[in-house]
């Protein structure tokens, strides 16, 4: 089992609010992703059992939505917006800077498994560009100094939690 009792209970509660059970799939995937950090067929099976829908329906939905990584990622998933408003404000150079700071290429995870770096489509922060999302949080109006600070804070946080 990859999902906790608490997550399963929450999935059931959420699903019960909708007129049809199938609507509980996306909320359930979100809960699973927030707990595990990614989703996979074992998780689809657990969700299907929890909210009583066919597993194929869970898999069908999961594979459509890009927000749920299908493989494990680092503790912190860094997603840089590479779309037009951010690109005009230097998003490409932000990605390069992160690659250099983290010593990895876009798409990769650091050897200590702390950071995964990817670039994504517009995140609705176009007037505070350039920006990135790390796990559930947005970091906007980024500068080199801010990026340095954010990475340092996250390293500290990870150390404190270890």
């Amino acid at each position: 089992m990859m999902l906790s009792e608490a997550s399963i209970t929450l999935m059931k509660e959420m699903t019960a609010r909708y007129p049809e059970k199938r609507s509980g799939i996306l909320p359930a995937l979100t809960i699973a992703y927030e707990e595990v950090g990614h989703v996979n067929p074992d998780i689809y099976r657990e969700i299907a059992a929890a909210i009583d829908v066919p597993m194929v329906e869970v898999a069908e939905a999961a594979t459509f939505y890009t927000m749920f990584p299908k493989e494990p990622v680092g503790t912190y998933l860094i997603q840089v917006c590479h779309n037009i408003s951010c690109a005009l404000m230097g998003a490409d150079s932000l990605v390069e800077y992160l690659e250099e700071k983290l010593g990895i290429k876009k798409g990769d995870t650091t050897p200590d498994n702390l950071f995964t770096l990817i670039s994504v489509e517009c995140l609705g922060s176009c007037s505070t560009a350039p920006m990135m999302q790390i796990n559930q949080d947005f970091y906007e109006n980024l500068t080199r100094a801010k990026v340095d600070q954010i990475l340092e804070d996250l390293r500290e946080k990870a150390k404190a939690q270890a």
Partner: peptide, 22 residues
């Protein structure tokens, strides 16, 4: 209800499919 990262789900009929779990 929260989505899963897809611009097309802003189009109203795609949004409704998504809300139905499809």
């Amino acid at each position: 209800h929260t989505g899963g990262g897809a611009y097309i789900c802003g189009e109203e009929t795609a949004l409704l499919n998504s809300l139905e779990g499809k």
